[in-house]
Design a protein around this nucleic acid. Structure first.
Lengths: 232, 232
DNA sequence: GTCTATAAAGTGATAGAC
DNA sequence: GTCTATCACTTTATAGAC
């Protein structure tokens, strides 16, 4: 058989892998196309051929992780809500639906968990100008649905108070992702395989307690949040 | 009187002001010396003359805020500890000592609060290679002292568990700083002057509840943290 | 202290050969 | 699909005139 150039080139995949690693390590802005092509052992022109522009590659990497995570978040939330048909969900279940997809995706990716966490941390802390428009729409929908669910689970909490607390919750999650590599060795030895699972349950317990702080269970409905707000 | 070039040039100050604003808006990596000199109405060579290199300016801006914040953190913690001579501090007081210096500095700076919060958020989320060595030493000392104080306030909490929770706490604070401009309009109208103070008390309540979660007040001392760990 | 001019290296992107 | 060569900028930094 005669050698032919691969129709679905492996180099496109190598480029993608190299880009993800470098973006995780240094951030999206600090990586040049030459850095990527060098690590992928590809030609400098390869990125423009396969992805159009550098920004195209960045947007692709972002959506490759952001889209499935946000979709799974919504699926999990809606599944849980359907099971309790109308009634408000336990806080812990909402937080689980929000955070578990981040753990789930680490299992599907070929990337080392350490790097993938950092990449996810960088993706979900993007905001403003650094943020591709496609991402904003996806995030907005997630924000809206989860703010509503949390508001229903904490009916006595004022709407603005809820939004502040959600930001504190999200910030903690992002910081955990960004520092997972430094945190893992802290939980020494015993729990090697489910490193991310341990982080997840710690996040849920901490955040649920913070969100519930001062909320009286039997208080009358003081305020249902009518406005949602983007936490990114 | 003959015109002389200002001995303590105002342009150095203008350069510093412009740099701080631009770093806050776009991050330290995304601002060129030309961006800065242009906004400061100064010559392109001015930064190298006044600050040596671009990195020198970045390090100066960082330490101008990081140093006083971290020093005030330690002073507040030590003052509080001296008052209760040996006994463990209330969690809320430790968190206040940790976060209030960030509020305090917004009062001293001429920068708009909105921008300064973002700058502080960017400074305190730096880590790894982006982190000047001088900063690491300062952060390490703060981490050590506060981890110890929190460990004493939560004696029944396992050392590794404490470190995870501290990261969740710090992440929330950073995210609040980074999003203060989006959060402020949420707390509509009523509380115009003490915008940052409201954020502070919300942070303290949320984090104290998260840190205390599942901690039984009368539990015996199970574990005092012997190792501290850098949360940045 | 401030300026111009310029060096030396790096940036993303593309035309065109193979 | 991959390559080289190159364009058109931009980057930080510096030498030297004023």
């Amino acid at each position: 058989m005669r050698e032919i150039p691969a129709t679905q080139s492996q180099s496109k995949q190598r480029l993608l892998d190299a880009a993800e690693q470098l973006f995780a390590e240094r951030g999206f802005e600090a990586v040049s196309v030459r850095d990527i092509t060098h690590r992928a052992d590809a030609n400098v022109a390869a990125i423009n051929y396969h992805f159009g522009t550098r920004d195209g590659l960045v947007a692709l990497v972002i959506s490759r992780y952001l889209t499935p995570v946000n979709e799974e978040r919504l699926v999990r939330l809606e599944t849980a809500e359907r099971k309790t048909s109308g009634k408000s969900l336990p806080l812990e279940e909402i937080l689980d639906a929000f955070a578990r997809p981040l753990v789930g995706i680490t299992r599907k990716s070929a990337m080392p968990e350490r790097l993938l966490c950092k990449l996810l941390g960088r993706i979900f802390s993007l905001q403003g100008d650094d943020c591709p428009v496609a991402m904003e729409a996806s995030m907005h929908r997630v924000n809206e649905r989860f703010t509503r669910a949390l508001g229903r689970a904490l009916p006595s909490l004022a709407a603005d108070e809820l939004i502040w607390r959600i930001h504190l919750m999200v910030g903690g999650l992002i910081h955990l992702l960004m520092n997972q590599d430094r945190l893992e060795p802290v939980s020494s030895g015993t729990e090697e395989p489910p490193a991310m699972d341990a982080a997840l349950s710690r996040f849920i317990r901490f955040s649920a307690a913070g969100l519930r702080e001062g909320v009286t269970l039997e208080a009358p409905v003081k305020n249902t949040p009518q406005a949602t707000f983007d936490f990114g």
